[in-house]
Design a protein around this nucleic acid. Structure first.
Length: 440
RNA sequence: UCCCCGAUAGCUCAACGGUAGAGCGGCUGACUGUUAAUCAGUAGGUUCGUGGUUCGAAUCCACGUCGGGGAGCCA
């Protein structure tokens, strides 16, 4: 005998007039003396089930009355289209089986504070809004990978345990690695996908990334997921075109396939619909001028002297001037990672770009053309105070058939936060890891 | 690391120097169309901790703990 239900709520429309068994959890229950309404959630959706006292045994009715919120059960009944029911379909219950009881479920349909919800994240993921958010996340991930696969990329995963800091700047989580000393949780897979790119031409890695920075904002997690494509024989221009096509394809697919979820999230989709290539581009130099022209419009967006990096308020100001994602390109090399290719026309700036999402969501992509000349790369490693010995293998990539190449990294959670219009990044991942939270 | 804010019933909050309260949730009962049902009843408190000021502290002060928001840094 199988425990599997006849069908799922999502497919219920095809079963009108038939008797089916559904299996799920009690999302909500209400009643009226001689009838009980159960809102049953099975993962694919929710459906109202009605239990009339006259139509079931006394024991079944008593059971229905005492079901707690989130009790697991199997219900058998006939499917009926009914305008009075949320969702349009209703199940007239003949039989009800309790699979797993639930008593005093902590999360009620009423309001709750952030701290309480985060403490109950393992249960919070059952609620409608979180469902919609995490379904969009899954869609974004699937869309990203499938689009890259169609473009001829192969997934080439990078290690999570690494021996040294890839970019040398941020803080890293350290752990003991047997007799070999410290190992660090990867803050990017980029250096490794460069090795893959030389092997396969077009590759990407996708996995968790770790930053031990004490960031305490709604845009930061200590553990987040990043997808990092890397392409051989690709310059800065190729890179930007790839990025705008990539982001647009993901957004358009979410609009197509997850419209119901965006609706639950009350997302204004007009901004998303505008997300088609080409994306506007602004140089670092022009961005400085823009900041000067609009300072005061965003709090904290004070003028920036040439050579200094933007802060969060500046990024917000720049993004607010455009109606779709905007590339900010060619930052001063001195404030960027050591591996970025200098602009041949202006060696003091790098062939790099950040993609800023509209509506104040900030940077969702960072990318660049990489240095392919071995001597220049070695010089940069030294200039950044890094140990060349740690980068022997990385320099090897330039010794044996080096080619101009480019790549970028997209933060999944930031992208999902923007696409769904979610204020805080913590809701876009099942179990967020933050400065003051590692439970549950 | 720095700045700002918060902690009172299971949850969301009120009381702001003078008897600790409401709504929801729980429990009991009524109700054949509920959508966060409604109505009646009922239980539920070390007001985060420690110290201080005061005749009197949930309330004022100090320190601590936990959490929230922001800066820097980044995706």
């Amino acid at each position: 005998m199988s425990l599997q239900p006849t069908t799922t709520v999502a497919r219920i429309a095809g079963y009108v007039g038939e008797t089916v068994t559904l299996a799920g959890w009690v999302y909500h229950k209400t009643g009226k003396g001689k009838l009980v309404f159960l809102l049953l959630r099975d993962g694919s959706g929710t459906i109202q089930c009605v239990i009339f006292k006259k139509q079931v045994s006394e024991a079944t009715f008593a059971l229905a009355q005492q079901l707690g919120q989130e009790a697991a059960c199997r219900v058998t009944g006939s499917v009926r289209a009914d305008e009075r029911a949320p969702g349009g379909f209703e199940l007239d219950v003949h039989e009800l089986e309790l699979v797993g009881p639930s008593v005093e479920y902590p999360i009620s349909p009423k309001e709750h504070g952030v701290e309480f919800l985060m403490e109950h994240r393992h249960l919070w993921v059952r609620s409608a809004r979180q469902h919609a958010l995490l379904r969009v996340r899954a869609e974004v991930i699937a869309a990203a990978q499938e689009w890259l696969n169609e473009q001829g990329f192969i997934r080439f995963d990078s290690p999570i345990l690494t021996a040294t800091a890839a970019e040398g700047t941020s803080n890293l989580f350290a752990t003991d690695y047997f007799d070999l000393g410290k190992a660090y949780l990867a803050q990017t897979g980029q250096l490794y996908v460069e090795a893959g790119m030389m092997a396969f031409g077009k590759v990407y890695c996708f996995g968790p990334t770790f930053r031990a920075e004490k960031s305490k904002t709604r845009r930061h997690l200590t553990e987040f997921w990043m997808i990092e494509p890397e392409v051989a024989f690709a310059d800065h221009e190729d890179n930007l075109v790839l990025q705008e096509q990539f982001v647009s394809a993901i957004v358009q697919r979410v609009l197509e396939r997850r419209a119901a979820d965006l609706d639950v999230l009350e997302r204004d989709t007009t901004v998303l619909k505008r997300c088609v290539p080409p994306f506007p581009r602004i140089s670092y130099d022009d961005a400085l001028a823009l900041i000067n022209a609009h300072q005061g419009e965003v709090e904290g967006a004070t003028p920036v002297p040439w050579g200094e990096d933007f802060g969060a308020p500046h990024e917000q100001l720049i993004a607010s001037q455009f109606d779709r994602p905007v590339f900010v390109e060619r930052y001063p090399s001195a404030i960027k990672a050591f591996y970025m290719e200098p602009d041949p026309a202006r060696p003091e700036v790098a062939l790099c770009a950040d993609l800023l999402a509209p509506e104040g969501y900030g940077e969702i992509i960072g990318g660049s053309q990489r240095i392919h000349d071995p001597e220049l790369l070695e010089r940069r490693i030294n200039e950044h105070g890094l140990d060349v010995a740690d980068y022997r293998w990385y320099l090897d990539l330039r010794r044996y058939g080096t080619v101009p190449h480019s790549g970028f990294g997209m933060g999944i959670e930031r992208a999902v936060a923007w696409i769904t219009g979610t204020r805080h990044i913590r809701e876009t991942i099942p179990f967020p890891r933050m400065l003051y939270r590692i439970y549950p």
